[in-house]
Design a protein around this nucleic acid. Structure first.
Length: 293
DNA sequence: CCGCGGGCCTGAGAGC
DNA sequence: TGCTCTCAGGCCCGCG
């Protein structure tokens, strides 16, 4: 599910409930998500104050008073819900309406703010891990990540530099978290459409033979900035699973121009093309062959 | 080292 | 209605 805008939306939703509050009680309702929970997972969380809640690529990072960091990934179907005004002291009792489906609520944090933070993940591709803050730079999950697409260091020069020797398509390069960290299938399709670049184009064509950025690279960076910022403003995209922590849907899916719009007329002014779909590296690519070159 | 395809899970929706 | 098949916002791993 979640790409950078969805994760950022979740972070902003969790912030008021978690930042400055203490994790009074932590509970896991099964022994694993994508990976088994660490044996000391709960022990390292309980009693700890959340100093700050940050994001790196599609990871959420909660800074704890102990010097640990709680790392959280939503996988494909993970979501968080904040239930206000709850003081859940009974194990297994997550205190929400009894008629709600609780089958996939896997983790709960009872915060001293009086909010319960509940992690739900039907497919269980998500995961959580507690690591020492000083080991953050060596953490394998984070180590290979490329630049933040909305960060200062991500620009046309940087993008073309990491693409000039790639043997693969532009689509695959943008999905590669080592090139830029936080994009997924939706926003790659949308950014390529906005910059009129073909997903089939060789990634290396973002650079000249001398390694200078072509104007394609500049257009693409602008498109990535634009689509991510707009999606964050809209609270992300809700196709199946994504929810804001309030339970509200995001609404950027209504602004998709190509993703999930196979067969529709291309929205580029004056373009007579139709949105097509094909499979690239095992994933659906949506694009307009008429105006994306 | 790089790029690709398989696999991990469950659920929704299409087609029969 | 109910079965079977395909597909889904991600990413690790093993192969060539």
């Amino acid at each position: 599910m979640p790409e950078l805008p969805e994760v950022e939306t979740v972070r902003r939703g969790l912030q008021p409930a978690m930042e400055g509050a203490t994790i009074v009680r932590a509970e896991t309702r099964r022994k694993d998500l994508r990976f088994p929970f660490q044996k000391d997972f709960v022990a390292r969380l309980e009693g700890q104050t959340v100093i700050g809640l940050g994001r790196r690529a599609k990871y959420l990072l909660a800074d704890l008073g102990s010097g640990d960091v709680l790392l959280m990934h939503l996988g494909m179907s993970g979501s968080f819900r904040v239930v206000e005004g709850v003081d859940s002291t009974t194990p297994g009792d997550f205190h929400y309406p009894r008629n709600e489906d609780r089958a996939h609520d896997h983790v709960m944090f009872q915060m001293s703010s009086g909010a319960a933070v509940v992690f739900n993940d039907p497919r269980r591709f998500g995961y959580m891990k507690v690591i020492a803050r000083k080991g953050l730079d060596d953490e394998p999950l984070l180590k290979g990540l490329g630049p933040e697409p909305l960060g200062n260091e991500f620009d046309a020069a940087m993008l073309s530099r990491s693409c000039w020797n790639k043997k693969t398509s532009l689509k695959a390069a943008l999905l590669d978290q080592r090139v830029v960290a936080g994009l997924g299938n939706i926003y790659v399709c949308e950014a390529l459409f906005r910059s009129h670049l073909s997903p089939r184009r060789l990634a290396a064509t973002l650079a000249t033979k001398k390694g200078e950025p072509t104007d394609h690279a500049g257009r693409l960076v602008e498109a990535i900035h634009g689509v991510l910022n707009q999606a964050i403003k809209a609270g992300g995209s809700s196709l199946r699973d994504h929810r804001q922590t309030s339970g509200e849907l995001g609404y950027f899916q209504h602004s998709f121009q190509v993703y999930d719009r196979e067969g529709e007329k291309c929205q580029t002014p004056k373009c007579k093309g139709t949105v097509k779909r094909f499979t690239q590296n095992g994933r659906s690519t949506f694009w307009c062959p008429t105006c994306q070159k």
